[in-house]
Design a protein around this nucleic acid. Structure first.
Lengths: 208, 208
DNA sequence: ATTTGGTTTAACCATTTGGTCAAATTTAAA
DNA sequence: TTTAAATTTGACCAAATGGTTAAACCAAAT
């Protein structure tokens, strides 16, 4: 039945997300995904043919949830300061909901960088050529107005995203080394960090 | 004999480093390690018993190469600005030599955070309880002197390390999205980034 | 030259794993 | 109600994989 089918397909995909994102392609087991979805292992192959195909689907969904967000945010009609606040805010919220995804994407892309090329070929909307042109102009504009000092757009954007993502992907290290593995302390750290990051960046580029 | 033995052991370890750091515990194959070391697979088990034990060794070496460095640097007798410049400089150089290690550590610790606990138990020198106490005092001192604005030490240190590591672990994304997969452009980006990061951080905390 | 101990290998084993298939079951159409 | 199609399952398979073992090899000591 079409309803039931959709349901099964979704149950499989949800289970696959969970297992792949936590264990990676090589660490994941089809049997575990089937168990988590509450179905027979053969059904996985009925709906998704192979492990690789199922993985590809999961990866694409994870990727499209995280990467194109930055584009939207950079394209919005806001001042540089507002954009930074907006991006940090949104990204940290997103990370709070999906803490495993960035590590998953980073790890799988390091294992097989070719995936990104294939993704760009298959899904043209990901490949926005002049993402930075507009942002570059805006930065230059605000430099001329004496609002910010001169900064390279790609370095700035790397910092914005990196400062959001790093404490999440490096959670075990940070929680372990900085907070003696105190989970509550780490969570408190994250909670206050959003404001710190915004201030840190704006302070760095603002002309005083 | 003892010379040859040491040599074989080293060859195995070197091969294991390469394979594990690129493919992770679950993605690595004992046969591939043996091939890369130019020896029979049974020799791996002769010298290191099991895959897990060999992996543990590789992980420990990688970990001890990266994490304790921060401690040394934070403990040195330098001003805050000098420390930041020193850490960024050293860390980026280290990353240039071992670009796979941070991703490796991050990924394996996310797969099994328990490893860190075991490592601390086994290797007490890693667990420096009051790493931040001295640094906190130094920061407060320079705040009082009007050199820097008031910043939380753990947030600051997270930023320093994160800004160094992130562009390396996220290389495929950055190279792909920001530089249209132009390897040279990415490398040029890294080369100029060291100075950018130092300026970015110091500018952010300096009182002008 | 023979013995002894560590080193290395080829062959082998048990288990795991991704994947298949024919049969059973369910669902929707005729 | 019958039929046809889609869905689900248990049983099974071949390949891959970590690990073992007995025999061969080799260098040094006697």
């Amino acid at each position: 039945m079409i309803e039931q089918a959709k349901d099964t397909e979704t149950k499989i995909l949800d289970a696959a997300k969970e297992v792949f994102q936590q264990k990676g392609l090589t660490g994941a087991r089809m049997q575990e995904i089937a168990d988590k979805a509450g179905i027979n292992k053969a059904l996985l192959h009925y709906y998704y043919r192979t492990k690789d195909k199922l993985f590809e689907k999961v990866f694409e969904l994870a990727f499209s949830l995280f990467i194109p967000r930055v584009k939207e945010m950079m394209m919005s009609e806001k001042s540089v300061f507002e954009k930074i606040e907006f991006i940090v805010d949104n990204y940290i919220n997103l990370l709070h909901k999906h803490p495993y995804i960035p590590g998953f994407i980073i790890n799988e892309l390091n294992r097989n960088p070719q995936m990104l090329v294939q993704l760009f070929e298959k899904n043209v909307q990901f490949k926005e050529i002049n993402l930075f042109e507009k942002f570059d102009n805006q930065l230059q504009d605000e430099v001329n107005k004496g609002i910010i000092r001169s900064v390279d757009s790609r370095n700035l954007m790397t910092n914005v995203i990196g400062l959001c993502i790093f404490p999440i992907v490096a959670r075990p290290i940070i929680q372990g080394v900085m907070f003696n593995n105190d989970k509550k302390a780490y969570e408190a750290f994250l909670a206050q960090r959003k404001q710190f990051v915004v201030d840190f960046i704006i302070n760095s580029i603002k002309v005083k």
